[in-house]
């Protein structure tokens, strides 16, 4: 479990205290509101401090394993709670394990961190934590915030002060499909890692961009969950001697999407071939009785799980232009010598 001292690398002591009190049923309702807890999104529950600190501890443990060389990569699927703010819970997130882990990486290991967030929602908490810090580079690819929570993550949010130019956002259009999503992700990640040359890569692997996800409006399939970790794995070896920490995140179709997506992530990370073909019949037999929906029968989605998207060419074009605009500053600087050491 993360200590208070570790949590307070990012979070206000008053907030940590409030969460602890809330978890014991001792925080007055009117005070809870100021800290973003006791809402429909982030209700108070017994032991909420311990549960939240535990998952932060898991991410810090993953970091330690990678940074001390005990392991090349490490995964904490219980982490990835990227909406947590310094003094406020938001969007189902209480403590922000990724923000804490990045600060921890800086203080303990003096590492330059590239944070890559593929959750369908903008990674706002992490972005704002390091918005003015040129030693941390954040990349978030998400459904446009025009309607979707949290509303931020626009392309023009590039950082401020010394951190200007180290915050990258790709707001893809609603209904974006695999090809366009993957093209955006691959292009941006590949060029940004070359620009930033991190010591370690931290990926947030929310699994809510899938067509089935009930809270978002993208039209991706399992294909992206096969490719997302593959590229992260390759780039971690290419730029960071393998140092790669991965955490979970969103993912609200817990039956049809998340188990397959996160299994793919682990199989890739542990250098196993990512699985194809039918899902384990034992698994299906075990869980189908509990599931409100029919479980998928294979690792990949069959063709035609959704109706064709009417405006596909326009959506694809718009996403391509977004990525071009996003990368313009680092592409135009490639000839000059602004690259950080």
């Amino acid at each position: 479990m993360a200590t208070d001292q570790e949590l307070e690398l990012i979070h206000d002591p008053a907030y940590v205290n409030a969460v602890r009190l809330a978890g014991k049923g001792k925080l007055p309702k009117e005070k809870a509101g100021n800290f973003g807890i006791g809402t429909e999104d982030t209700p108070i529950f017994p032991g909420m401090h311990e549960a939240s600190a535990l998952l932060v501890g898991g991410t810090l443990q993953a970091v330690d394993y990678v940074m001390t060389g005990k392991s090349q990569h490490a995964l904490n699927l219980g982490g990835g709670l990227h909406h947590g703010f310094r003094g406020k819970a938001s969007g189902f997130c209480i403590y922000n394990d990724s923000s804490v882990a990045i600060k921890y990486l800086q203080e303990k290991y003096h590492a330059r961190v590239l944070y890559v967030d593929t959750d369908a929602h903008h990674g706002d908490g992490v972005q704002w934590s390091f918005y003015d810090d040129p030693e941390v580079c954040t990349l978030s690819i998400h459904e446009t915030g025009r309607y979707l929570f949290p509303g931020t993550g626009n392309i023009n949010e590039r950082g401020q002060g010394k951190g200007y130019g180290y915050s990258f956002n790709i707001p893809v259009d609603a209904f974006t499909e695999d090809d366009s999503w993957l093209e955006s992700y691959t292009t941006a990640f590949t060029e940004i890692v070359e620009f930033f040359k991190p010591d370690v890569i931290l990926t947030q692997n929310g699994a809510d961009s899938h067509y089935f996800d009930p809270l978002t409006h993208l039209s991706a399939t399992m294909r992206i969950y096969r490719e997302i970790p593959r590229l992260a794995h390759k780039l971690a070896h290419q730029y960071c001697e393998g140092r790669w920490v991965a955490v979970g995140g969103g993912g609200y179709d817990i039956w049809r999407v998340v188990p397959r997506a996160w299994s793919m992530l682990w199989m890739e990370m542990s250098s196993n071939p990512t699985p194809t073909g039918p899902l384990s019949p034992e698994w299906l037999d075990t869980w189908q009785p509990d599931s409100p929906v029919t479980l998928p029968q294979s690792w990949d989605d069959p063709e035609g799980i959704y109706e064709p998207i009417p405006r596909r060419p326009e959506i694809t074009e718009k996403n391509t232009l977004t990525v071009e605009k996003l990368l313009y500053p680092i592409r135009s600087n490639q000839s000059s010598s602004v690259k950080p050491t």
Partner: peptide, 10 residues
């Protein structure tokens, strides 16, 4: 328009 605070639009 409120977009500077985390929220959803309906």
């Amino acid at each position: 328009t409120g977009v500077n605070k985390p929220g959803s639009q309906i």
